[in-house]
Design a protein around this nucleic acid. Structure first.
Lengths: 304, 304
DNA sequence: CGTTGAATG
DNA sequence: CATTGAACG
């Protein structure tokens, strides 16, 4: 993997892509991303930066300046979800990203254009790339790309939504089980970083209205237990590991009803790490001021 | 019917809603609408103004300022086609037209929202209003509204397209036959004004590329003969009657390939009058500089 | 509320 | 090229 990326902008500098009105009306509901922790707990500086973003339609996201933000963020690996387009339909603007991230991989839904779809872009060439989770009953929708690098795997994932009325909750549980198998198989070979929209808020701190959403897709007992099972299998939630008490730290806000302005959101996007990467973890950031989708991007800093 | 409307803007005044770049590149293909003929051939001044416009989606047309243009044009009867919405979904902005045109009638496609649909709005209350052409096999798509006024009928019509590959040409011929019956039935009772998108260019002067379009929907022999049959039944094409030699006078330009800027168009929108209204005809105008749809509006001036 | 492809013109 | 409702979130 490459060495140390360029330094973060110092505090007090004007951030580049900030919504004109991004602060919520009630300051008690706001979340201010703290300054970057540049080093691990043992003092090693970060050398790998991974960014993940559910773009909610790659073409619209490009028009809203997504590419320029990625260039300013300059990760070494970029994971994108809900591209809603296949490799053939990727916007031409992605050529300009070849400088920063020349190795680009895309997965799309078979026979259902405009649905789901993920991407994984890297500065360095992966040793190998696989698509799906090794279960044909779950691999037709373009939801997972796994890239192998010398020291770890990176998995870009878009976990299926349980659907309105929880019509696909059973299917989601089957997915969760098969997906965890995929992760444990990889983890037996090499540590991994899972990046993406896991479509679940794990705990009550991870969404604004936990009680009202007890049977909403993304916060059912069943989905939360699916996340429990991942952590129980030897993985950690990078953000919650570093910030166990952080409140109002969300990565998704429905477009309906001006939820984002009021920070009525959910934390659905994660970096999940193999336990043995704990000592490499420097920081896990939520770029909650960045616009361009109903999700915001997140960035992970590792010393590997 | 009401008396004399307000006078037309004098020549040399700046028109209100003109595209920033409406003149075609090659002046030999342009059409300049001549000054209004305020009177009939026998010298009577106009007293009734009817405007017709295929709006290609009423909601989008409202956003592009269609209502404001209608207010400046100030017809006593307004016929709209391809509204693509039913009476329940008419944009609320139409309430502001109640001042000018308080009597508003809408027809929409049954069980197929967003398809076809016509409207007829009037300053004075019609004596009666009917929907369709009296043939159930053709009356489920919201294509015709007939309003009876003291001295004449006004018919707002959106004639069905023959379809790509002429897949619906036979159906169109059946329509043409049934529609002509509707017109002759009305004409036996009272003179009529048919206003709308008849989806045919009658003669070679009525489209830019007649040879290339000999088998295109809107210029097949079959559709042109359908128009011949209307004229043969005792009706006249108001514009061509007044301007038998006019070239490049079009009312529709496909959005594809910048056709409007080059005035590569078709005359598809007409006022067709009962022969005995000939002596009432003052003028028939093509508002080809007015934007808001892939069709432009047309206005008829009658001394009735 | 906002994205996408489909059908239609 | 541009409009619409449908599916999805």
């Amino acid at each position: 993997m490459p060495k140390r990326g360029k330094k973060e902008a110092a505090e007090g500098e004007t951030p580049k892509k900030v919504a004109s009105r991004s602060s919520p009306e009630d300051p008690s509901t706001s979340y201010v991303d703290p300054p970057l922790r540049e080093v691990t707990s043992s003092g090693r500086g970060w050398s790998l930066k991974v960014t993940s973003w559910n773009v909610d339609g790659l073409r619209a996201w490009v028009k809203k300046g997504g590419i320029e933000w990625v260039e300013s963020e300059a990760p070494q690996v970029l994971c994108l979800q809900e591209t809603k387009c296949g490799g053939g339909a990727v916007p031409p603007e992605f050529r300009s990203l070849r400088e920063l991230l020349p190795h680009q991989f895309w997965a799309s839904s078979q026979g259902r254009p405009g649905y789901a779809g993920v991407g994984l872009l890297a500065k360095d060439p992966p040793l190998s790339v696989t698509y799906g989770i090794g279960d044909p009953s779950h691999d037709s929708e373009g939801r997972v790309i796994t890239a192998e690098f010398p020291s770890l795997y990176v998995v870009s994932a878009y976990v299926p939504n349980a659907g309105r009325g929880l019509v696909r909750l059973e299917r989601r549980r089957a997915w969760d089980s098969a997906f965890l198998q995929h992760l444990t198989r990889l983890d037996a070979l090499k540590p991994l970083v899972l990046a993406g929209d896991l479509n679940v808020a794990h705990g009550a701190l991870d969404l604004r209205h936990p009680k009202a959403n007890a049977r909403s897709p993304g916060f059912t007992r069943e989905e939360r237990e699916g996340f429990d099972a991942i952590l129980g299998a030897g993985f950690l939630d990078s953000f919650r590991h570093l910030y166990p008490e952080a409140r109002n730290a969300f990565t998704f806000w429905t477009y309906l009803g001006g939820a984002r302005q009021r920070n009525v959101g959910w934390r659905l996007d994660y970096f999940v790490l193999s336990q043995r990467l704990e000592e490499a973890l420097c920081d896990s950031k939520i770029r909650n001021e960045v616009m361009g989708s109903d999700h915001c991007p997140i960035s992970l800093y590792l010393a590997v």
